[in-house]
Amino acid sequence: MAAELKALFRPRSMPEAIELLEAHGDRARPLAGGTALMVGRSPRVEVLVDLGLLGLDRLEVGAEPEPGARIGAMATASSLARWLKGAGRGAGLTELLGEAAESIGSRILQNHVTVGGNCVMVYAWSDLPVALWCLDARFVAEGKAGSRTIGADRFFAEHPSHVLGSGEILTWILVPRPPRGAGGAYLKVTRNATDHGLASAAAQVVLGPDGSVLTARLALGAVRGLPQTLPTAAAALCGQRAPGPEQLAAIGRAAAEEAKVTADFRAGAEYRRDLVRTIVEDALERALARAARARQGGAA
């Protein structure tokens, strides 16, 4: 990249950053953690606009009317995971998001990868998009025309870099506070501790007072080019009261059937489909156990 890159700007205000991106058009990219830009070098990128001085690395507990987590797009995966275990507990999220953040590559890589960068530059194996889609997060983007909020279904419907307009910058990710009785889990299967995933699954469930499943959401990563949700398999769980191993095995089979799966050098499609069956079942089991504890004890 050293040879191709002509300039690296470090704007100190959002209008300045937007202006720079607009001025350089297709030749410019916003710089967040830099891992995608460094490794996937593109000769077309001549100008980088560093977002590091815009105060976008903040992590906040959102107040009413939008309780939950307000995650600055420049917060790193490691700072997110740390915050969720400390001050961020007030956001009331389940373990799902922190588990996804801590499953990215190695711990040192987690010091680089930003939440916003992981979402906008989503790869097949990216972890946070799977978790954030499962949590129905919303994505705030700022551009010349002002600010807009994009739902996860829209944000991940195609590659998010195409959803954002040129000169538009992802600034915040809003994760809604789950209702009482929620439980979540993120699971990933890899060949070794730091390789990209062969398959990953995020599950979030909410249990009612009688132990029946009020809502369930499932999302998958690493089994095809982009993450996906599994609305049909998740819906099949809703209304069930204290689902046991047999019921969860059935949801796992439904997930394997619903999932869009592709083969690559890491794994064949049939193997991946079988992984989906297994990890959806396991993630749900974990999420349900946590939801049951949250329902009884209060804290998620």
Partner: peptide, 13 residues
């Protein structure tokens, strides 16, 4: 103070 891969960092940043 945080362990970081210097190969993934732009010096200018």
């Amino acid at each position: 103070g945080t362990p970081s891969f210097s190969c993934l960092l732009f010096a200018a940043a």
